[in-house]
Design a binder for these strands. Structure first.
Length: 660
RNA sequence: GCCUGGGUAGCUCAGUCGGUAGAGCAGCGCAUUCGUAAUGCGCAGGUCAAGGGUUCGAAUCCCUUCCCAGGCUCCA
């Protein structure tokens, strides 16, 4: 038998006997790698270790602590979970079970009317551990479609998947379930479980084990509301106990930062059930933060050449017939109110009203770009199951603007908008941005191809001008024009979609908007929708999570708390508070009726940026002791005026005293 | 809207087999006067989400509705 050469990732060549498997290549490289390898990537296709490598192939081995490796661990864990479920519920139907970010899931339909409950997770996990201990090999086989159908005759979901392959269904629809082409592949481990799967898998179940089942949830078969609802079991799986622990810790951290929890603890916002779902009230401490956000937003928009408008919350439905919203989004609107002269709706968006303002008189090209800005409160009838704290809510306020401009102005306008958006987001402490550029859906759009191309180019070149990393989402645009969405990364690495810049060729048509150009002819303006925060409520929620409630000083509801050491220092404490308050600082005073340590502790728990402690020395010297949030090392003897100066500078700079 | 799990004091939670409600923190009062993360004692606080049913008796069992969580679907 002759030898062949394969090419390793570093470009070096390795000689192996003809017929060698990926496992043999690993062994030829080193014993350690042979022991670690889970699978291989051969000519950029992931394969099992048992795969026979062709001569001249590019071969890299996949080890657990890599993106490929974790995906394989997770996918194989999903198989083991299905096997465990079938042991516990013989006759269960299993649908699909892919690896996902941080874990895996599998969808099932249990026999009879059986349903998983949370308590079942522990039972399933126990059987999974037995299967792991049994050290079952994963064995791949390829079958003809007919043999596949026969093998899974009592598994209707598998039959449907195979039938789809026969019909030539698109590859991206099957979530890694099956090979494409004339054959399907199946993986069996031990005798009692076989699953349709493209693979690859770990060589044996003993390579698994660092997993944890997380929760059970409902999921529609094929993601289609009209099809049966299955039960989905979610798990997480990792290459090591440390990695699993780190992931669980990250989840705890996210929970610690949960804006709903913080909003309650910090007395910022509540969702009284008397109001109904998805409707929030802002308490005084939340209200002052919102006021700061709004004031800042208004100031920046004023500088940015925006004009301020105000529109009502309720309108005659004719407006939304004109705009087309009643046709497209009626389900998302609050139900109509019948009144004497027509049908009225709560406002789900501001744009149609801004178009009316544009159209209230003849417009000259000299007025363009016309930038209309409104903190506009809108109401959307979100389905009950979709509500989520402040992130998904039924009544919210958009920092909404519509810009009317000429085609020639579009490019510059978008570029300056992008700069404006990122500038404002930076002022709130975000610095890591990425973008999505959504392009035309060829099935569903209005406007000419030329204008779409021009607008898409304008968006793209603006992104490139700012060096903003972006992905193109083909066909993801709304029917009325292309758009840029901006994501920010928060302090623990999660991304949030916040801002949006959308071109609109539809509203100007529907509202028959026009301006008179230098040529004395009527022209159609282009309209841009844009929001920076998106919704103030949601942005506030994101800020809370980003800062874990430790808002920067300019936003903190209470910026300074002054504590006298004894109550004979209270008068001096009050004078310090007065001095700061006169400079616009939000300062409170707590009298010395409890031990100092107790009051300090409470102030820290309240996340107050600065606690000032004043005692005998301070009264004598016009000083304060400064205890900053995030520090356990207070500074004694700071002069009141020095503190005030530094605080003013910090507020102006949107800084904060800690780095949490 | 759908699936699973929930809703007990302002917050976090306990409450056994159906026998009539409990803790810690927060609040209030009194005492304490203290130099950087918990002073002591006392008091008050509840339509057990709401409504209906079963029962001698319901926080507990059943039904309906509302609200919440995690998903699915949806998101102009």
């Amino acid at each position: 038998m002759s030898d062949i050469e394969v090419i390793l990732p570093d470009g070096s060549r390795k000689t192996v006997p003809e017929g060698a498997t990926a496992r043999d290549v690993a062994a030829a490289i080193g014993a350690r790698l042979a022991k670690d390898a889970l699978a291989a990537r051969v000519n950029d296709v992931v394969v099992d270790l048992s795969f026979v490598v062709p001569a001249g192939a590019q071969v890299s081995l996949i080890t657990p602590a890599s993106a490929d490796g974790r995906e394989i661990l997770r996918h194989s864990s999903a198989h083991v979970m299905a096997q465990a479920v079938l042991r516990l519920w013989p006759g269960a139907k299993y649908a699909i079970g892919p690896a996902i970010e941080n874990g895996f899931y599998y969808d099932f339909e249990l026999p009879g009317d059986a349903r998983f409950t949370d308590d079942d997770l522990a039972r399933i996990e126990e059987v999974m551990r037995e299967i792991v201990a049994e050290d079952q090999p994963f064995t791949r086989r390829e079958l003809s479609l007919d043999d596949g159908l026969a093998l899974f005759a009592d598994q209707p979901f598998k039959v449907e998947i195979i039938s789809k392959v026969r019909e030539g269904a698109s590859d991206d629809e099957d979530l890694g379930e099956v090979a494409t082409g004339p054959v399907v592949s199946v993986y069996a481990n031990a005798g009692d479980f076989v699953d349709l799967c493209r693979g690859p898998h770990v060589p044996s179940t003993k390579r698994l084990g660092v997993f944890k089942l997380m929760r059970v949830a409902g999921a529609y078969w094929r993601g289609d509301e009209k099809r049966p609802q299955l039960q989905r079991v979610y798990g997480t799986a990792w290459e090591s106990a440390d990695a699993l622990a780190a992931h669980l810790h990250q989840l705890e951290e996210a929970e610690r930062r949960d804006h709903r929890r913080l909003a309650t603890e910090m007395d910022l916002i509540s969702f009284p059930s008397e109001l109904g779902g998805g409707l929030a009230v802002w308490h005084p401490r939340g209200g002052i933060v919102r006021k700061e956000m709004e004031d800042f937003s208004r100031a920046r928009h004023l500088e940015g050449g925006y004009e301020f408008v105000v529109t009502p919350h309720v309108t005659n439905g004719r407006l939304y017939e004109t705009s087309g919203h009643l046709d497209f989004y009626k389900d998302g609107m609050y139900p109509p109110m019948e009144m004497d002269n027509g049908t009225y709706y709560l406002k789900p968006m501001n744009c149609p009203m801004h178009c009316l303002i544009f159209n209230s008189r003849a417009r000259s090209y000299r007025e363009l770009p016309l930038r209309l800005f409104e903190l506009g409160t809108v109401y959307r009838y979100e389905r009950a199951g979709t509500l989520h704290g402040l992130m998904r809510i039924r009544g919210f306020t958009q920092d909404d603007a519509h810009i009317y401009c000429t085609e020639d102005q579009l490019q510059d306008e978008i570029a300056s908008l992008l700069s404006f958006v990122m500038d404002v987001l930076r002022a709130f402490g975000f610095s890591d941005f990425t973008a999505n550029l959504s392009t035309k859906d060829p099935e569903k759009y209005v406007g000419s191809d030329e204008i779409w191309d021009a607008a898409t180019d304008a968006l793209r070149s603006a992104l490139e001008r700012f060096g903003l990393e972006y992905q193109i989402k083909k066909g993801d645009a709304a029917f009325y024009g292309p758009k840029i969405d901006i994501d920010v990364r928060d302090a623990i690495g999660r991304t949030w979609q916040l801002s949006t810049i959308q071109c609109d060729f539809n509203h100007p048509e529907r509202f028959d908007l026009h301006y008179v150009g230098a040529d004395n002819q009527r022209h159609r303006p282009i309209m841009l929708h844009r929001a920076l925060f998106g919704s103030i409520e949601r942005f506030f929620g994101v800020l809370l999570e980003h800062y874990a409630g430790n808002l920067p000083t300019w936003l903190a509801p209470e910026q300074v708390r002054v504590l006298g050491v004894r109550n004979d220092h209270d008068a001096y404490a009050a004078s310090v508070a007065r001095t700061l308050r006169a400079e616009g600082v939000r300062v409170s005073l707590e009298e010395a009726s409890e031990p100092l340590g107790s009051r300090i502790r409470r102030a820290k728990l309240d996340k107050v940026p600065y606690v000032l402690v004043v005692g005998d020395d301070d009264v004598a010297n016009a000083t304060v002791g400064v205890n900053a949030r995030g520090s356990n090392d207070p500074s004694r003897g700071v002069s009141v005026s020095d503190f005030a100066t530094a605080l003013a500078a910090e507020i102006l700079a949107h800084g904060r005293p800690d780095a949490d």
